[in-house]
Design a binder for these strands. Sequence first.
DNA 1: TCACTATCTCACGTAAACGTTAGATAGTCA
DNA 2: TGACTATCTAACGTTTACGTGAGATAGTGA
Lengths: 154, 154
Amino acid sequence: MPNDYLKIGDVADLLTTTVRTIRYYEEEGLIEPYRTGGATRLYSTQHIARLKAIMHLAENGFSLDVIRLIGTTRNTCSTGDEGSEKVSNIIESAIKNIEDQMNNLKLLKAELKAADRQVKKCAGCQNEPSSQGCPDCPINRNLGKIEVLNLIWE
Amino acid sequence: MPNDYLKIGDVADLLTTTVRTIRYYEEEGLIEPYRTGGATRLYSTQHIARLKAIMHLAENGFSLDVIRLIGTTRNTCSTGDEGSEKVSNIIESAIKNIEDQMNNLKLLKAELKAADRQVKKCAGCQNEPSSQGCPDCPINRNLGKIEVLNLIWE
DNA sequence: TCACTATCTCACGTAAACGTTAGATAGTCA
DNA sequence: TGACTATCTAACGTTTACGTGAGATAGTGA
């Protein structure tokens, strides 16, 4: 009987996810599809757009708790003004988290690049890897500068 | 009897983590501290540097599996040359993952900023929030452009 | 209408990264 | 040498985000 609406299996295929995941989002109060008389879930294009947004955030590390907050706050407000401020606050805090993450990743990336350059210096070496380094090996002398090397060089 | 070495509680304080976490890293084969005769764990400055590296990666989303791989691969090689290439491959793949993540976050951040601008347009509005929007409200007419708005506007 | 496939609702299982006792042992200070 | 506190091992508990049946019901093409 679904003509304009999609059933859960089709939605799962469309969004390349699983039926279970979509049901789980419903269990968690993130989305509420329509139902046929027989309790089969039906999803409108709006439902699907909402699911896309949920998945997009989830794939970028947002917890379902935060996603739920984003998705429900506006409806719990009595005026557009109130909703505007509350939702804006949530979004801006999310943006700040993302910026922090990006900064951390940027630093880590630089460190990994530096580590990679050091590691590559062992190319061609026929000695056994050791934590002491070979007698005349200069590499292990500045492990401390590049934190992650302390992990690699045992 | 720890003079030059630290016991697990002091290490936990120093690194602002928990005793359990440090023990867990050991269970997972990420680090192997010394022991007193009485089985009390002892950590050298090298151990601590290694723990710092582990935590730094873990805090940036690296799984302990990947961290273990980074931390053990070199020792399983028979020559510096072999270790160099294998470890470099792992590091470069990690860098690539970070770059992907950063790109995704950058896009998401832009989208959230756009959403925030839209949301702020409701400031001062005294009507109830609705998915239909107010009769002459222009905001909900282009929800589709900004994906996450489909989550916020119910 | 029949046969078949998709969905439904429980409900238990899973993996990662620890948290939290419990009971026993070890280290430390007066 | 007590008394006290920290650590030890072992093992079960917790959270998040689903996976995986089991048995029942609903939707669908011939």
